[in-house]
Design a binder for these strands. Structure first.
Lengths: 331, 331
DNA sequence: TTGAAAGCGCTAACAT
DNA sequence: ATGTTAGCGCTTTCAA
């Protein structure tokens, strides 16, 4: 049986309210009593029951993190960043994996919303309407998606795509293929847009091969269509897709980068380990998680609606050049 | 402002206790009132406050999952399995990442213990003493570790090692190196033991090169020592280590499997994607997570101490042969 | 500076 | 079958 505040109070010879104050507002209690309370707390190994506290303060000290797929290293990294930052403020984190299912996401969000002070929605596949409904119910921070009036952190996808295109064009590529991710993904739309702009700015050609699952399998599936476009270079929605694509190209005996250059996005650990090692746009993943928590805590501390709107962070990706592109020029 | 049980009661024209009963023990309430309550619940979008319920029932409907490193795909998969199974029973999951730090683990566990019905400790690095202390405070299910009197799920490491060794010996290897994982890891001890038995049973030689971090970097660090042993084959603590080792061997121009055969453990997605593709012992990861939840829910349902002791599941690994071993015989 | 009392949202006796 | 009462562990008025 864990000790309650009354046990502590009894042992310290004070009232429960004094114990409560000694813990949450130490300045309002006599230093002598404060010491006695501290001793009792120590001796009993007392830890306040957060649920009980939350019931009255309306604050649970918990936050929720919702991701499409924990097995995707990108999300695992974001989750790690969230964890790390949350722990610093003694905040516990509920994690929910939606399995890339928008319907499941809605359910999980509703279930979590009641037990947390706020929610971090990572790469949410929810519709705009659903999203604002959620934002009404609890504090929300978005990762990888920008929505008016909701706080969040996004990557500058346009800049990432510009870097990738500049690199490929410098290598002599004139036709670049693009393998898109989930249609509901904000990132895929913005990467596609940025890519289109960058390619045309360089007077090159863009060959879009459509939407694929953001997974290794998605990349395998996309490979043949990419080859069919006749492009000499391809940029994929993310690294997982690029690595799947690499595998299929290898199976078909198509040499990378000899016949086709490949660029991914994310720089997951796997990218470096791929053969050939994958050129990619490195996104600061843990940082996104940390900032998301930061934002959420800020919003919670000062819930003025004005702040929510401004609280949008933009992170920048960085092109990491590896063997999967050049120096061999395309055919 | 979310609706409370009193709002529902008022709208349905009944008392709060009736609403409570209609929701938790529907059979004890008149079907007519049950319908009225259901309607009110629906109309108000009422969702019981779990914290409040937990305060009185002593059950929160939450569980905690503690892992050493979410960025390790093995743990990400286990987490996914846990999530999936927990969701089926409408249980929410706190996830804590200890960053491979035993001290952090202790703190996180204590913090979580109060807000959950039970804890799943995955590859816990805690000492036996700490572990039993935790098991005293809350219900615990261990993954990847076997402890007397604590429920859990482990892999049959011995069998996995036997399969790997039989494979290597059949290929003609006579000296097999072993790269161990964290010293505090139950798995590393049992893999090492099983390996030793299997190797000697085949009349072969075992060359142990010590403990390394269970990461890509650990594998890089181990590679040169492995080579120095003169072994023609190496088995590593896990796939991440094997892949790091592969990278370092590649950098040194040592051919795999031509000069050295490599076998990992886990079969993370990355293993298939490695070049050469990694031979490994496939562990059912999500299944471990699912079973852990199952066990925990069972223990919670019927907290007789007798069950806890028996509730230990053993899962079996399966050797997956890929390019990193044979058919080329060792030198 | 401290204590007593009330109550957060809910469920579990105890009545009826 | 339903309502009333009490109280889970905590914080927060309000008095002293």
């Amino acid at each position: 049986m864990p000790a309650t505040i009354r046990d502590v109070a009894r042992l310290a010879g004070v009232s429960p309210s004094t114990v409560s104050r000694a813990l949450s507002m130490p300045s309002m209690v006599n230093s002598a009593t404060r010491v006695r309370v501290a001793a009792a707390v120590e001796q009993l190994g007392y830890l306040p029951n957060r649920a009980a506290r939350g019931l009255i303060t309306g604050r649970t000290g918990n936050i929720g993190l919702v991701v499409p797929d924990l097995a995707n290293p990108f999300f695992a990294s974001v989750a790690k960043g969230v964890q790390a930052r949350a722990r610093r403020d003694d905040v516990a984190v509920f994690v929910a994996d939606t399995d890339e299912d928008a319907a499941a996401e809605a359910g999980l969000v509703r279930a979590l919303a009641k037990q947390v002070d706020g929610l971090i929605l990572c790469s949410s596949r929810a519709s705009d309407a659903e999203l604002s409904a959620i934002a009404q119910e609890t504090h929300v921070v978005l990762v990888n998606r920008r929505e008016e009036g909701v706080a969040g952190v996004v990557y500058d996808n346009e800049s990432g795509m510009r870097q990738a295109v500049a690199h490929l064009v410098a290598l002599g590529h004139r036709t670049i293929a693009w393998v898109g991710g989930p249609d509901m993904s904000w990132s895929t739309r913005h990467r596609s847009l940025g890519l289109s702009d960058a390619v045309h700015a360089h007077g090159a050609e863009l060959a879009e091969v459509g939407s694929f699952a953001p997974t290794y399998e998605g990349g395998m599936a996309a490979a043949d269509q990419v080859v069919a476009t006749g492009a000499t270079a391809v940029i994929t929605y993310n690294d997982l897709v690029a690595i799947g694509l690499l595998a299929r190209l290898h199976a078909r005996g198509i040499s990378v980068p000899g016949e086709l250059s490949v660029v991914g996005v994310d720089d997951i650990a796997m990218s470096r380990m791929a053969r050939p090692a994958l050129t990619t746009v490195r996104l600061p993943k843990q940082q996104a998680g940390r900032i998301a928590v930061e934002l959420l805590l800020t919003v919670l501390r000062d819930p003025e609606p004005d702040n929510a709107i401004r609280a949008f962070a933009t992170l920048h990706g960085e092109l990491i050049v590896r063997e999967s592109t050049g120096p061999a020029p395309p055919p």
